[in-house]
Design a protein around this nucleic acid. Structure first.
Length: 563
RNA sequence: UGGGGCGUCGUCAAGCGGUAAGACACAGGAUUUUGGUUCCUGCACUCGGAGGUUCGAAUCCUCCCGCCCCAGCCA
């Protein structure tokens, strides 16, 4: 019943792994890792990486580690390590006992740094940060050697030990790899590999006051864990030379292969950590888990199922070219999944009162309605039908255009699983002209929705019984931005200028069929003819339900109407 | 005017010298008690451009054009 995952299409990383396995490059199963820095929440772009790393490992009988790249105590927090684990688990992946932290390797990393010094391949540089930048040169001019570049090994060893001992304040010294100040690749111009930071680390506390840099830590962590394929995004391509240099200089058990792929971009969204933080901090959204955010916690709360995300990640492919995936594909994956599993139910979002003039006052009859017409196994519930109902305001037009075939004066339509009704007349407010209620007649012969005489109606409407419906708030979500590329206005307009004023439309006067009274937190439903909705996990209460619109149904009428 | 990457349908993306998969989107049509679903059909004589090699090129070579990344003691 659940949507089957797409059969994997070829991609260059999978091909590399297949070749490596065929060539018997490794005497053991392949091993990958997902290495987030715990300095923020995960988003859909991370999901691509997670699915890739865990997915490839599973596909080829290997394993994938979860490793926190926690080498910068001033930016990282325990809150993030917890949310990241929750998100990865929610996506459906299991690192079993392989939860690692780069900080677990601080001792070994320190030893490796000492080895580099002993080999004459690293030195303590006492230039200021500013001077280091000056000495680095530019894209077109070579850098020049630091005056500290030729310090003796013994002096370097002593200084580095004292750095570790806390003898120096922040910023006074760094440890640098001695490579080549004239290298055309800036990364190789004697990169800093250790800096002094008198800061408390979320795991090691105050044990250390020097912390290794990414380029030194990451490759060694990969080697320590025995990673075979170290998959990262394109912006690390320049760093690969350094990744390889460190592992070549040091005695390590293995030398993983770094492979870069293009990060995910999505239309109508912004996926950079910096911009997402700005949206949260400046209150453009309610938080990291605002259903409009592309964060994992946001899309979870929005109601996107993990299976849909995984399917999406498989479908977008993996390549090396910069690309922007159409949000419509993500939404398609969500609909495809929810179409199979979501029970159908009726909810009127913008109610308009309908009085059935020929229906007996006070009478109620209960009509059986399946939860999923294509899947009878999902069962059914009974709907109360009575003299006063609500239908959707959009389903009635007093003066309908050509292609509109819902309710209008004199016209007959079907109420789903109930009766045919015909609109007799409209009652309006004498002053404002606003429609107050519709008066209709029903045909008792059409009970259940079928006409014994075989006559047809052009439309079937959803409805609820006024006396039995329960009130609810429904939050309609739309794209957070009005433009597919909020990030890259050619005139440099700030992305926040493109925030969609209609990205959240809260409706507080919605009426739900009574079966929804005990909808579980987070559960998914299709509100017939409207879209997929879920019970909000944060604000919904038994006495005051709140539903989020996950995604609309495809809407042919909306297309016609907009022409 | 340093180095490293990348350019195949509107958007993703296979293809790796033998004559352009697939998906989304879009446009028609059928079925339908959701203008939903499902089902058909259409949608790149052409692969950034120009030359060249070859019986044969998106795939190899040359030149050109465009876009992305790198000057954190961030990752």
């Amino acid at each position: 019943m659940s949507s089957t995952d797409q059969s994997p299409t070829s991609n260059f990383i999978r091909n590399i792994i297949i070749d490596d396995i065929q060539a018997q490059k490794y005497k053991r199963p392949i091993m990958t890792r997902f290495p987030p820095e715990p300095n923020g929440y995960l988003h859909i772009g991370h999901a691509k990486s997670i699915c890739l790393n865990f997915g490839l490992a599973a596909e080829f009988g290997g394993v994938c580690n979860l490793r926190f790249d926690d080498t910068n105590p001033s930016k990282e927090e325990i809150e993030y390590v917890e949310s990241i684990q929750e998100d990865v688990r929610w996506l459906g992946f299991d690192w079993e006992s392989r939860l690692y932290y780069a900080s677990d390797y601080f001792n070994r990393l320190y030893d490796h740094a000492v080895q580099l010094i002993q080999k004459g391949k690293a030195y303590v540089c006492s230039l200021s940060a500013d001077d280091i930048r000056q000495y680095r040169g530019t894209l077109t001019e070579p850098g020049k050697d630091s005056p500290y570049r030729n310090r003796l090994v013994e002096e370097n060893l002593d200084l580095f030990a004292r750095m570790r001992n806390g003898d120096f304040p922040d910023g006074t010294h760094v440890l640098r790899a001695k490579i080549d100040m004239a290298a055309p690749n800036l990364v190789m111009r004697d990169p800093t590999i250790y800096r002094i930071r008198h800061a408390s680390h979320h795991r090691t506390g105050d044990t250390w006051c020097i912390y290794p840099m990414y380029d030194f830590t990451h490759c060694l962590s990969d080697a320590i864990e025995g990673i075979t394929h170290s998959i990262c995004t394109l912006e690390f391509e320049n760093n690969r030379s350094l990744y390889d240099w460190v592992l070549d200089e040091l005695e390590v058990a293995c030398h993983p292969q770094q492979i870069e792929f293009a990060r995910l971009n999505l239309t109508y969204a912004v996926l950079s950590k910096r911009k997402m933080i700005e949206l949260v901090e400046k209150k453009y959204v309610s938080g990291w888990n605002d259903p409009r955010m592309p964060s994992i916690s946001g899309i979870r709360r929005r109601g996107y199922p993990p299976e849909a995300i995984r399917n999406f990640c498989e479908r977008i492919g993996v390549a090396r070219r910069d690309s922007t995936v159409d949000m419509a594909l993500l939404e398609h994956c969500v609909r495809e999944n929810l179409n199979d599993r979501a029970p159908r139910v009726m909810a009127v979002l913008n109610p308009i009162r309908v009085v059935i003039d020929n229906y007996p006052e006070g009478q109620v009859e209960w009509l059986e309605a399946p939860y999923h017409p294509e899947n009878p196994q999902m069962g059914s519930r009974n709907l109360p039908f009575s003299k006063t109902l609500f239908i959707e305001a959009d389903d009635f037009m007093e003066d309908p255009p050509k292609k509109f075939y819902r309710l209008a004066p004199g016209r007959e339509v079907r109420l789903r699983y109930a009766f045919f009704i015909k609109c007799a007349y409209v009652v309006k407010d004498e002053i404002t002209g606003k429609i107050l209620e519709l008066h209709c007649t029903y045909d008792p012969e059409t009970r259940g929705g079928g006409a014994p005489d075989g006559r047809k109606v052009k439309a079937t409407l959803h409805w609820v019984s006024a006396d039995h419906a329960i009130g609810a708030e429904v939050r309609l979500y739309n794209h957070l931005f009005t433009r597919p590329d909020p990030d890259s206005a050619k005139d440099g307009t700030d992305f926040k200028e493109f925030i969609n004023p209609d990205s959240l439309i809260p409706l507080t006067d919605c009426r739900l069929e009574p079966a929804l009274a005990d909808a579980a937190s987070g559960s998914h439903y299709q509100f017939e003819r409207l879209g997929y909705f879920c019970v909000d996990t944060v604000d919904s209460r038994q006495t005051a339900p709140v539903f989020n619109r996950t995604v609309t149904l495809k809407d042919e009428w909306a297309k016609i109407r907009n022409k």
